[in-house]
Amino acid sequence: MKRKVALYGLLCLLCVPFVFPTWWMVTSSMKPISEIFSESLLPSEPTFATYSQVFRMQPFGQQYWNSLYIAVVVTLGTMAVAALAGYAFARIRFPGQNVLFVVVLTGLLIPSEVTIVPLFQLFQSLGLTNTHWPLIIVPIFGAPCVLAIFIMRQFFIALPPELEEAARMDGLGRAGIFYRVALPLARPALGAVAIFTFLHSWNLYLEPIVYLSTPDMFTLPQALTQFVDNYGGPMWNVQLAAATMTAVPILVVFVLAQRQFIEGLAHTGVKG
């Protein structure tokens, strides 16, 4: 019993730095700017004026939609590319397989800051700057996809070969085996990939800054930086209101679906 109390106490204490920033963000977004640095945990007079200000200063609804649809498209695309490549690297034998895998893995080692300039040049020459294409194509096919491929490969490697043998006996070809047998089994791994990818795209900061230049094309993280007054001074409470609106829906979805969420993540094939 004593042990239990101690454990709960420890957990509660450890929780503080994880929960407090979010709490502070939400409550401070309802404070007038003069109260931001006050010690009070709750705003003395909650105001939602900052929230309407967010929409007045930026096309925030449009930006929300941009972030959302880009993240969804990237997630679906990455799932497809990663499942195909992960499956092939894990289950199909073909000449040069290992070399090609290493080639693909290089992407895991490269910070995006390193290659952003050549990539920008590429998209500039294609006339695709200030469109959402670079934010969609590069994550699906480029470096950000590599972790997903790795996760899928690790999952497929652990799949018992007997299942495929049986399917082959039934006359299924490779594509059929992949689509009918392997893919349905890979649901947890795909779930993990989906979560990783969605978060990655949702949080992307450097790339939107680089590629997008008009406010109605912006994504949320980028939009958050735009709430400044005439002299370039930050409008903290408005920024916090916008930040709250970007964070809270995701948190709510997470709390509702957290079991599938975390169990999906736990299946990232790290057992291998």
Binding site: I116, V117, V210, L224, T225, Q226
Partner: peptide, 22 residues
């Protein structure tokens, strides 16, 4: 967040320049 907005401007700008295309 002035820093971030400064970063925004800086990176965007630098890249525009780096393309150095005609």
């Amino acid at each position: 967040m002035t820093t971030l907005s400064r970063l925004t401007a800086l990176i965007l700008a630098a890249l525009l320049a780096l393309t150095a295309c005609s």
